[in-house]
Structures are given as structure tokens and as C-alpha cells.
Simulated assay, not measured.
Amino acid sequence: MPKIIKSILTLICAFVPAMVILNLLGITLVTSFAMMEIIAMGIDVPNNVWLATISHDLIYLAPLYSIIFGVGLVISLIAADFASRFLPFNRYLIDVTAGIVSALTALTLMNNLLGVTPIGASRTIAGLLALSACSGLAALTFSFIRRKITS
């Protein structure tokens, strides 16, 4: 198998699980923050409604969430690959930092370009940090799988 095809397959095999992690954690987090806001208003939200809402969001929000955060993750991982050639830090640390920065950048750009915060969870520092951590975990997943495949 030609080297370029093997490299592309390696990247795909590492990126797909990273996107699954990103979507599962991020969307669950976004929905949970919204549910907590509803509960804070004094409305009772039964567990089955909470879980049904998460399931619904995982199905219908995943494409948009993947585009918003997936594109940012791809760009950040490319930048991390380039930066790792010049920085004396552990590659996992560089990739995780790139993932966190990609989420912060995506959320900041949306807030500035749209004039609103389209993802409710990012309206608080806790939500912003949690969404960024999800992206960081996705980047770590990518980095770990990529290294396991290539070693």
C-alpha cells in the first residue's frame, strides 16, 4: 500500500473516534447545561425527559456540532503538527492544547460574528471551559490513536 494512502487511512482512523468523543461529550454537556437552566427556573425535568432530550440532540445536533467544532479541531491539529516540530513539549500536550484553543476560538468567533451566543452552555465560564475540555479530550483521543497505529 502506498505511503500516502496509509497516512490518510491512519488520520481517518484516528479522527473518526475523536469526533465521536467530541460529539458525545459536547452535545451531552450542552443539553445538560440547558436542562440545568430549566431546573433553575423551578421547572421539574424528569430523568426520562432529560435522557430523551440528550438522545434527540445527539441525533439532530451532531451534524451542526461536528461542522462547528470538527473544522476547528482539524485546523488546530494541523497547526499542532506543525508547531510540534519546533516546540520541545510532549506531543500529547500540544494536541490537547490545540483542541482546547480550537473550541475557545470557535465559540469566540461565533459570539463575535453572530452577536449572540448560539451555544447556551458557553454563556458561563464553567460551560466554556467544559466545552473546551471536550475538544481537548477529542484531540487527545486523536493523538493517542494516531500514535498507537503508527507505532
Rank of each mutant, 00 (worst) to 15 (best):
L73W: 15
M110V: 11
G99M: 12
S76D: 00
F82R: 12
I78T: 13
V74E: 13
D95V: 11
N112R: 09
A103S: 12
L113E: 04
G72S: 13
A103M: 13
D81C: 14
L113P: 01
V96K: 05
A106M: 11
L107G: 13
N90H: 03
I59T: 08
N90L: 02
V101S: 08
I67R: 09
S84I: 06
A83P: 04
Y60K: 13
M110S: 02
L107Y: 00
L61M: 01
F69Q: 07
F89A: 11
I67H: 11
V101C: 05
Y60D: 11
R85S: 08
T97D: 06
F89D: 05
A103L: 09
S76M: 02
L61K: 08
S66L: 07
N90F: 02
A83C: 05
Y92C: 09
S84H: 01
F86S: 01
L109E: 00
I78A: 15
N112V: 05
L93G: 06
I100D: 07
L64Q: 09
L109D: 00
L64N: 02
G99F: 13
R85E: 14
L107E: 14
L114N: 12
I94V: 05
L77G: 15
A80T: 03
F86R: 08
A62K: 01
S84G: 07
S84V: 04
Y65M: 04
S102A: 11
S84T: 07
S84Q: 10
N111Y: 09
P88D: 08
L104R: 01
A80V: 07
M110I: 04
L93R: 08
A80Y: 06
A98C: 05
V71S: 01
I59E: 14
L93Q: 03
A103T: 09
Y65N: 00
I59H: 08
V96C: 02
A80S: 14
G99E: 11
P88S: 11
N111I: 15
G70Y: 03
F89Y: 04
P88L: 12
D95W: 06
N111L: 06
L77R: 09
D95P: 03
V101R: 07
A79T: 14
L109W: 14
F82E: 15
T105Y: 14
V101D: 02
G72Y: 08
P88V: 07
A62Q: 07
V101F: 15
I78F: 14
I75K: 11
L77V: 00
A79E: 13
A62C: 07
Y60S: 13
I68W: 03
L114H: 07
T105P: 12
I100Y: 15
M110K: 05
I94P: 06
I68G: 12
L73G: 09
L114S: 03
G99R: 00
L61F: 05
L104D: 05
L114P: 01
I68L: 10
L77T: 07
N112H: 03
A98D: 06
A83K: 02
M110C: 04
G70K: 06
G99T: 10
L109I: 12
P88I: 10
F69T: 12
F89T: 02
A80I: 03
M110T: 01
P88C: 03
L107A: 11
N112I: 12
A98S: 02
G70P: 08
I68H: 10
Y65L: 02
V74R: 10
A83M: 08
F82T: 06
I94K: 11
